[in-house]
Amino acid sequence: MSTEASSNYIFKVVLLGEGKVGKSSILLRFVHDQFNKNHLSTVQASFMNKKINFDNKRVNLNIWDTAGQEIFHALGPIYYRNSHGAILVYDISSEDSFDKIKVWIKELKKIVGNDIVCVIVGNKTDLIKDQKLSYDPEPHLSYAKSVGAMHFLTSAKLNENIDEAFLEISKSMMKIHDEKQLANASLNRTGSMRRQLRVEESTEAEEMTEAPTTSRCCGR
């Protein structure tokens, strides 16, 4: 890996959350700084690319929106494989949406592992002001702490805390990425890195006859 590659980060971040909690609103607010969907010329709000500069390092965030409907819940693993971070959005006015978060966190830990950075976002804080909605973030905060996730209260409508949430997740992802690179290249998550190592191996053995390893057969 060349030096310039180390200062360039490409992260995949999945947006998880029940339908109507404001996933795409958060996305649009973060990427286009817009809330009213009708004012946007963008065709889609499900895949977004955002480049941010942080500590003289360039971070490229690939943000993947996911379908939040219950019927598509089983498809989750397809979405979040190879992702570096997950933003889990719930609606502060709906306790059900928070319960879904718990399920996702469990799944993420199980499938992707502990390396994935999780950020829990309680959206629609503007409702507290508008409707005098009583909201106690304490249980959610303690849950977030227990699973090692960050917690943010945001409002896509009022543009509160959105940038902060994305910035924090980027920081954490960079930290993990750097740690990994330092620790051992062989542990790298990205496929290209893994393959690169294989390449080196095979170049060494280029002139040797390639035969399937016996372990493959035994694996059956």
């Binding site: 969907k37 946007l40 499900s46 379908a67 409907q69 498809l75």
Partner: peptide
């Protein structure tokens, strides 16, 4: 698909609309 979704729903389509 995104183009046609723009005709039926207001604003850019999110994954909630796109996947179905």
């Amino acid at each position: 698909i995104f183009t046609l979704l723009k005709k039926t729903c207001d604003g850019p389509a999110s994954a909630d609309e796109f996947l179905p």
